[in-house]
Simulated assay, not measured.
Amino acid sequence: MSAEVLDPVAAVRRFNRFYTRAIGVLEKGYLGTSYTVAEGRVLYEIAKADGVTAKAIGEITALDAGYLSRIVARLERDGVVGRERLASDGRSTVLRLTDHGREVFPAFDRRSAALVEGMIGGLSAERRRRLTGAMAEVEALLGAPEPGPVVLRPHATGDMGWITERHGVHYAREYGWNGHIEAVTARICADFLDSHDSARERCWLAERGGERLGCVFLVKDEIDGVARLRLLMVEPSARGLGVGKRLVAECVAFARAAGYREIVLWTHAVLTAARAIYAVEGFQLEHTWTHDDFGAPEVSETWRLVL
């Protein structure tokens, strides 16, 4: 892999060069017209809004006010855009297409759609899906939207695959554990899907803006009246948000409401953040032993909370 691909700044610049060429930004006339890309964008926003202030166009396009004023002036000279005073406020005006503009714009809009169709026409349905998904992710990442609140939700289709994958990746990367942790996780997830009792067993996913941040399970133990907390995991990107604490607290509240007497869990001494959460919630360390199931000797622990 080249150094340019590894460097995110170089990669974005490379993509910009590709895309500006692909959509004809550098051509003298955009879409075969005498207009620039910026002028075409302003015309598009005016046409779609059917009555919009210049200030609103500026907010949408982020164009400099002086530059935008010159673009609007040109569109007015060409007779495709006109100004109308608002009946509610005679000092304010909105921009609208003129009769001539309504004749010109549909052809302009069709050429824009045809350009895109020409770019993606050879792609299969699956490749189109991948393309639109990748573009949505670029918008989300570079648009820097407010992250929104962290919510806890029940498991849904596809979550078990994500839980299995993330446990395998997380523990291999941070602790050097082998693939046995992924196998253990997959069995727990499969058993849960096959036979979980929705009244007394739950899986929660922590999520923000559609991005999964963590998970936990509460299931029946072999001993009647005892629940088992399993597979608590928080993504590194979500650390410091209180996700693990909320997931464990949700388990405890559910267990009490479901009538369990105790909650038991299995963890490891190396998982210090999780152990701190358990201790704060009132769990007590009950038993320790050493095993090498994950590739190297690890101190395993049993913790218990009497409800």
Results as ranks from 00 to 15, higher is better:
25 V>T: 03
196 H>L: 02
131 L>V: 09
137 E>S: 10
248 V>M: 01
22 A>P: 02
35 Y>L: 06
222 E>K: 13
111 R>S: 05
194 D>Q: 10
79 G>V: 00
35 Y>E: 05
33 T>L: 13
235 E>G: 06
150 V>M: 03
300 S>K: 04
96 R>V: 05
131 L>N: 11
129 R>P: 10
236 P>K: 03
139 E>M: 15
72 V>I: 12
193 L>V: 05
7 D>I: 04
284 Q>V: 13
142 L>S: 14
196 H>G: 02
221 D>A: 09
236 P>L: 04
98 T>Y: 02
164 T>A: 09
93 T>H: 12
289 W>D: 15
47 A>K: 02
226 V>H: 14
304 R>W: 03
197 D>E: 00
119 M>N: 11
243 V>K: 06
164 T>Q: 08
131 L>T: 04
168 G>F: 07
164 T>M: 01
121 G>C: 05
19 Y>T: 10
262 E>K: 11
9 V>Q: 09
125 A>M: 03
66 G>L: 02
167 H>T: 07
118 G>C: 08
204 W>D: 00
126 E>F: 06
273 A>T: 08
269 A>C: 11
229 L>K: 01
242 G>Q: 04
191 D>W: 05
267 T>A: 14
65 A>N: 11
4 E>D: 06
157 T>E: 07
87 A>T: 05
103 E>N: 07
103 E>V: 12
66 G>Q: 06
239 R>A: 09
210 G>C: 02
6 L>F: 10
38 A>R: 14
18 F>H: 14
256 R>A: 09
280 V>H: 13
265 L>M: 03
259 G>Y: 05
106 P>Y: 04
125 A>G: 11
197 D>Y: 04
90 G>F: 14
75 L>E: 06
144 A>R: 07
217 F>S: 00
204 W>M: 01
44 Y>I: 15
44 Y>N: 14
217 F>N: 04
196 H>D: 01
